[in-house]
Write a protein that binds this DNA or RNA. Structure first.
Lengths: 129, 129
DNA sequence: GCGGTGTTGCTAAAATTTTAGCACTATGCT
DNA sequence: AGCATAGTGCTAAAATTTTAGCAACACCGC
């Protein structure tokens, strides 16, 4: 069963997975409250069930209700989403992506953050030998 | 009409928009050839028509065929996709996103690229005063 | 001129996604 | 105990997405 994250998801399924990845886990109600143009409680429930059938989610009993969790760990999903993003908008170049992040309107990178990034780059340079 | 890029697209619509943004523009056949698990020519045509109706695409006559172009410019679409990505996978932090790009498996940032990025950061630091 | 190829314009159907709603269970409060 | 609240399990229908296929037109090489 492929479970390739982020591709072959429908519109609402993607919105739901986004919420769950953003929070780490979520209940039906939490998902619903965070979806734009929110669908009904029932609709969300049904879609969570479908996502579970498809192997994207699992759930645990959390007191009286279900807590849904991603099957593919956040980091893996993140990486494959990033790759897709690089292909689509940055001609596959990680450099360009970083550059775009640096001057994204409202990304608001503070001096401290920039310092830390400078260090990371320095480090990558040393390692990449 | 909103035309908010990337949200409220169906699965195939998104795949199509991705191809078009990746290439800048595309014909029916070009789109079809670049979609995984490719749909029929007819299907692609129909979806391009729908995307045009919805205001995501426009087309120009290119010799005998149509050339489809995005209505929202690449950079704008890119930024909003990036923001979504930051929210979902990086807790809204551009710094974390950059860090992830730096050690993404197979991102393959060369020494030269790292050098250029170091410069960009230096520059951002100076400007951000 | 003629057939083959590649395109668009349609329409309608198949498939999937999305929604609503009823039945039932557990919990907490009075 | 009785009732309201909040949850799940289902099923079935509505809505949207996705597909197939025919008709017409233009172009190209023969």
């Amino acid at each position: 069963m492929a479970v390739s994250p982020h591709v072959d998801l429908s519109r609402r399924e993607r919105q739901i997975m986004d919420v769950i990845y953003a929070r780490g886990s979520a209940t039906v109600r939490e998902v619903m409250d965070r979806i734009p143009d929110p669908p009904s409680y029932s609709a969300v429930r049904a879609m969570l069930r479908v996502l579970e059938e498809k192997g994207h989610l699992k759930h645990e009993q959390d007191g009286p209700r279900y807590m849904y969790l991603p099957v593919v760990p956040r980091e893996k999903a993140r990486d494959s989403a990033m790759k897709q993003m690089l292909r689509t908008f940055f001609d596959g170049s990680a450099e360009r992506a970083v550059a775009a992040l640096l001057d994204m309107p409202g990304s608001g990178l503070s001096r401290d953050e920039l310092d830390r990034l400078a260090k990371l780059i320095e480090q990558a340079r040393k390692e990449g030998r």
